[in-house]
Amino acid sequence: MIPACPLADLPRGEAFRLEIDPPVSVFHTEDGELFAIDDTCTHQDASLADGWVEGCWVECPLHASKFNLKTGAVDAPPAKRPVRTHEVLVEDGMIYVRLSAATPNLPPCVATKLAGVLA
């Protein structure tokens, strides 16, 4: 489990970006629910924490594909692949994230950059 931030520091409607590789963001919806998904859009290199949250969807800040915060599903292109979702827990006022074991769907530009680092 990775500690993110104190719940008190994350107002409703805001997101907290965990600077791990690849980055993960925790969203606090207007309804008070908490969700964690991969922060990088599956289309191009955009941070979904910069996006526009409405209900349990976040709209990518660049080209408006929307991702479901609960399931990771994408509504319509340009992004075509879902993001991973991660489990969120709150203990003693602290938000924790348990990372998914699935392979992330990184956009081609980011995936090649990562591959370059590994090579």
Partner: peptide, 10 residues
């Protein structure tokens, strides 16, 4: 400025 831009667009 994607983050601020998105706030302003909203």
């Amino acid at each position: 400025q994607p983050r601020l831009f998105t706030r302003w667009r909203k």
